[in-house]
Design a protein around this nucleic acid. Sequence first.
DNA 1: ATCTGTGCAAATCTTTTGCATTCTT
DNA 2: AAGAATGCAAAAGATTTGCACAGAT
Lengths: 156, 156
Amino acid sequence: MEARIEKIKQQLQSQGYKLTPQREATVRVLLENEQDHLSAEDVFMLVKDKAPEIGLATVYRTLELLSELHVLEKMNFGDGVARYDLRDDNSRHHHHHLICVQCGAVDEIMEDWLGPFEERLESEFHFQVLDHRLDFQGICFRCNERGKPDSLEKSH
Amino acid sequence: MEARIEKIKQQLQSQGYKLTPQREATVRVLLENEQDHLSAEDVFMLVKDKAPEIGLATVYRTLELLSELHVLEKMNFGDGVARYDLRDDNSRHHHHHLICVQCGAVDEIMEDWLGPFEERLESEFHFQVLDHRLDFQGICFRCNERGKPDSLEKSH
DNA sequence: ATCTGTGCAAATCTTTTGCATTCTT
DNA sequence: AAGAATGCAAAAGATTTGCACAGAT
């Protein structure tokens, strides 16, 4: 954790920015909730516990800055708010999302299935791929289990 | 075209809704610009040519209604506005997007590459897939050509 | 008459911006 | 003192909602 903060600090400094207390508190919240796809409002509320004087605008500015540095990825799952994902260490991000339409959970698959397709895009479509995004909408395993704990259960 | 409007009319009527003149004008705009991923504002301006008295709220309500009926898909490409895609005739939609980060164009690939993965998700992850979304960000063939018309051109 | 749909304006919600103040160097 | 960063409040932009009115059955 400290190592990752140190790294982000260096990414900021290499571009002339500082890791201020507010920015650090924001980054810590993101690290502590790495799987959670927080919205700006979510981050704001969590950061307020650590640094109650912080303003919402600062959170937005920090998230924007970190997105520009490719520390975060700004995503939109269609619910009207932007959500932020810490990126894997370097450049491209290689995971996919499983979005449950029932409970709203967003799980991640930490594999990259798209390499072969990206090659086809470049050779056949002359499209130079910089990044990708793959989301599946459906019913997650938790909701599936809840609905029919096992095949022995009677329906009503 | 008329056949598709007729079909949408029936989808509406089967749920107790009517294809009013405003709704029909909206649908026609969507059909005429099928590849264009229009925003609500875009649709509004185009519909105004056909039906100048229409209100923006009506366009929003129509787009929302058609999305609920799965005639349209509401998408978000990250530029702060929702965009709408006519869906292929029936249920699941099977095309992918190539989003150019340089000129903003959104092209479509009318193939479905994900069938095998969806099977894996169901068997390995117990995730019941209802739909998916696959977007690639990169540089489109047009911008690529503009940048280097052919490989004979010298760089500066 | 009733019920759906519409236009307009106001309200709401998320995000951005202006500006005076604070912090860091 | 100078520049960067912050907090607050106001502004902006997209979308939704309340409501009186128009249209169709």
